[in-house]
């Protein structure tokens, strides 16, 4: 027990980092689901593509002589902007090619789900191929950008806690995600596009009668969701240093879990769900072995996330902040 308490500060720091990543990716799922009622399986892979684009930008900029001495912060800004732009455009493209024709045909939801699985496979292999071709290895490791180490001295204030250490990247990740989350929240609640988005989510047909261009709103939603996902990919790269083309799948499922946890379709719920899931997962990873006396190690942390997903879907499918819906014929 005391060991669990000692580790708490470190768990909190690690959990928050992971939670921020989940939160932003979860927003992409929740926005698309809110509008189209579609689980966009490809979203996790858009996140992954974002991290590879970020790595690509980093390698390109570093190879240009005059830029190699640029301050890290500038480098980081270029990475995140380019990644967000490319993945945003990609998201719009995917919606155009893979989802819009189905919507026009009024095809069953199952079909759209299957297309999105197909798209996610295509993205994984395309990225693997490009990475493998250009660098000779599909697992990419970059040099750490913000590696200054900080220590929070919990121990001297509360003697029952250990100290928590984190890298500079933790600060960058937290600050950038918080900026993204707040600006998205403002965008959705205050701007004209945000209001149109909410209107389309509520009732697509009525919104179109109110002279809202539904297709364009859907495109904008995909752009924003994917751009946020891609930018988070860069944050992930900075925090963990290594990416491979298959990270998108499992992270995507967990982010979806976070979105469901917070109530799917609810943007603030997704933020909260993401952070909560990150904390829970890190707590499980750090303490499962202690709690079960070594019977289960941290390798079960993924199982833990799936069990949360299944439990939420069974007992409270509307999530923590969602409204229950009534199914009609």
């Amino acid at each position: 027990m005391s060991q669990i308490i000692q580790l708490l500060p470190q768990v909190l720091v690690d959990g928050l980092t992971l939670g921020f990543v989940y939160a932003v990716v979860a927003i992409g799922y929740t926005m698309v689901y809110g509008i189209l009622e579609l689980i966009n399986f490809a979203h996790g892979d858009i996140f992954m593509t974002g991290s590879f684009v970020g790595a690509g930008v980093l390698f390109t900029v570093m190879s240009m002589g005059f830029m190699s001495s640029a301050p890290t912060m500038v480098l980081f800004m270029i990475m995140i902007l380019v990644a967000a732009l490319i993945t945003g455009v990609m998201g719009v493209g995917i919606e155009r090619v893979a989802y819009r024709p189905l919507r026009k045909r009024n095809a069953p939801k199952l079909i759209a789900l299957i297309t999105s699985i197909g798209i996610s496979f295509i993205l994984e292999d395309a990225v693997r191929f490009i990475a493998d071709w250009t660098t000779g290895n599909y697992i990419i490791t970059t040099r750490p950008l913000f590696q200054h180490k900080f220590t929070i001295d919990f121990h001297s204030v509360f003697p029952f806690f250990n100290n928590a250490t984190f890298q500079g990247s933790f600060l960058v990740v937290s600050i950038v995600t918080i900026i993204m989350l707040i600006s998205l929240d403002l965008f959705v609640s205050k701007t004209k596009w945000g209001i149109a988005m909410r209107a389309v989510a509520q009732d697509r047909e009525t919104a179109s009668l109110m002279s809202i261009n539904v297709n364009r709103v859907i495109s904008v939603t995909f752009f924003i969701g994917s751009a946020l996902g891609g930018a988070t990919g860069v944050l992930f790269l900075i925090q963990y240093g290594t990416v491979d083309p298959y990270i998108g799948f499992i992270l995507g499922i967990k982010a979806f879990t976070a979105a469901v946890l917070g109530g799917i379709g609810n943007i603030r719920g997704a933020m909260f769900g993401g952070i909560l899931l990150g904390l829970l997962e890190m707590f499980a990873a750090a303490n499962l072995s202690t709690i079960t006396h070594g019977a289960m190690g941290s390798e079960y942390k993924d199982v833990f996330a799936f069990i949360i997903l299944i439990l939420v879907l069974i007992f409270k499918p509307e999530g923590l902040f969602g409204k229950a819906t009534i199914e009609k014929v």
């Binding site: 893979a98 197909g118 996610s120 496979f121 295509i122 994984e124 693997r128 071709w133």
Partner: peptide
């Protein structure tokens, strides 16, 4: 070597899924 067809499983099956679904 990265483009060797045996490694492109996901790509091929992804395309099959999308094309047939659409």
């Amino acid at each position: 070597d990265a483009l060797s067809p045996a490694k492109m499983q996901r790509f091929i099956f992804g395309i099959l899924l999308v094309v047939f679904a659409l």
